[in-house]
């Protein structure tokens, strides 16, 4: 029997034009939702903030929900080490959520074409999270800069994968060098 192979919902990738923000598919990342009572802080990260710990990005995406992103082993290790009380639940949503990453100096400008949030450095700094409509799809956004370069993670329902990828990629093409 063939071995199971994870398949992303983004099935067709497009080339990134030179100079345009790079859009990559990070859907295979392990994603675990940690739910707790409103007001609790089981992972020490506040709502609307994200922090990296032991290779895992911990994102406060709702007042009672934290999203853990990372390699399978890293996420498992972090959860194993965490001391949660009985009211905390953890739900693996690796397969539920699409995860795209948009990186580049003009990535905020590209997002401005599909989302109404203010992505300015003051309002959406590195380590910030937000939820909004992106190209009419309810999405979570996390600013996770890479070596000082602006980078945004976008998480949305898996079934919108190819649609969202195409919509955001289209928004980036304006920033290619040739234009």
């Amino acid at each position: 029997m063939a071995e199971p192979e994870f398949r992303s919902s983004v099935t067709t990738l497009a080339a990134t034009p030179a100079g345009a923000p790079a859009l990559t598919d990070e859907s295979p990342l392990t994603k675990v939702s940690v739910r707790a009572r409103v007001g609790a802080s089981p992972l020490g990260v506040d709502f609307t903030r994200a922090a990296r710990r032991d290779g895992v990005l911990i994102c406060g995406i709702r007042p009672d929900e934290w999203l853990l992103l990372g390699g399978e082993g890293e996420v498992e290790a972090l959860l194993a080490a965490a001391e949660f009380d009985a009211s905390v639940n953890r739900i693996d949503i690796t397969h539920s959520r699409l995860c795209l990453r948009l990186t580049g100096v003009r990535s905020a400008s590209a997002l401005e074409k599909v989302c109404s949030l203010d992505f300015g450095d003051m309002m959406f700094p590195d380590g910030a999270t937000g939820s909004a409509s992106v190209a009419k799809v309810s999405s979570d956004l996390v600013r996770d800069d890479i070596a000082g370069e602006p980078s945004y993670l976008l998480l949305a329902d898996r079934s919108f994968g190819q649609y969202l990828y195409d919509a955001i990629h289209d928004a980036t093409t304006e920033f290619a060098d040739s234009l």
């Binding site: 939702s33 739910r35 009572r37 409103v38 009672d64 009211s87 639940n89 739900i91 949503i93 690796t94 397969h95 539920s96 959520r97 329902d157 898996r158 079934s159």
Partner: peptide, 15 residues
């Protein structure tokens, strides 16, 4: 019923 301890997670397309 905010006092009820229930967490709801939509997983329609997770499966």
């Amino acid at each position: 019923h905010p006092d009820w301890e229930v967490h709801v997670t939509p997983v329609t397309t997770g499966f």
